[in-house]
Design a binder for these strands. Structure first.
Length: 221
DNA sequence: CCAGACGTTGTT
DNA sequence: GTCTGG
DNA sequence: CCAGACGTTGTT
DNA sequence: GTCTGG
């Protein structure tokens, strides 16, 4: 699962990593404790190629009666994302990349939940596989997204049974290409990062409160 | 036919 | 216990 | 994901 | 919007 992550990388570097124009910027600042319901940057298709834009984390389907859901949509299971009513349409043509440079998972130890921070061995920004949708009504528009999750790889199993799907840079363009609609081809791009590229360490419970947003969140326990 | 759901994880 | 808010 | 709330009427 | 349950 993936319910918290970080994005401390400067916006200029994020744009560079995803081959986006440096010109117009969103003014992103480093974030150490991104939580569901917050606005997060995603990369998606626009009329002028790929764009970086802010959307709400927690997908509200286009057919929803209200701009909110009664159930959790922060994550979509890779096993069923192509079939579930809430996700299948976005999965076909509204896929996105969600930049992150680390994420949190809680490991159950003797009935206690110990938070861990996971990042690339060499550091740097990478991309969660995401899908987005647009809700419109009453003159308001809400764009929102969900992070695709999958069974944990060997590197992650010691902490948790599930993990976010990570897209390799070589697959960025095809993941975003809405002309690609074959389910198995799309799922083929969801190879998670090789085990050797991920490292993790336990951290203090400081991260537990979404109100705590400073660097202490990622400090080793 | 209409009404109601549409989700995930973890625990029992 | 369960839902909402961040 | 975790933390925090979970209610009503009336008055400021 | 579309599927499932009654």
């Amino acid at each position: 699962m993936c319910g918290r992550f970080t994005l401390q990388t400067p916006e200029s570097q994020i744009r560079k990593a995803f081959h986006l124009p440096i010109g117009e910027q969103l003014g992103l600042t480093p974030r150490y404790n991104i939580a569901p319901s917050q606005d997060i940057p995603i990369i998606r298709n626009s009329d002028n190629g790929h764009e970086l834009t802010l959307v709400k984390w927690g997908l509200v389907p286009h057919w929803s009666k209200e701009p909110k859901t009664k159930y959790s949509t922060i994550n979509a299971r890779i096993e069923t994302v192509a079939e579930k009513p809430t996700y299948r349409t976005p999965f076909k043509s509204q896929r996105c990349l969600i930049p992150a440079d680390g994420f949190y998972e809680w490991k159950l130890v003797n009935g206690h939940k110990i938070p861990h921070y996971i990042r690339m061995h060499k550091g740097g920004v990478f991309a969660f596989a995401g899908i987005w949708d647009r809700w419109e009504g009453d003159g308001e528009t809400l764009d929102s997204c969900s992070i695709i999750v999958m069974p944990a790889n060997e590197a992650m199993k010691p902490i948790h049974e599930r993990m976010p799907a990570i897209i390799a840079p070589a697959h960025y363009d095809l993941w975003l290409d809405s002309r690609v609609t074959d389910k198995d081809e799309i799922l083929g791009y969801l190879n998670s990062a090789p085990s050797s590229q991920l490292k993790f360490y336990p951290i203090s419970p400081w991260v537990n409160s979404p109100q705590h947003k400073d660097e202490r969140c990622i400090q080793p326990a």
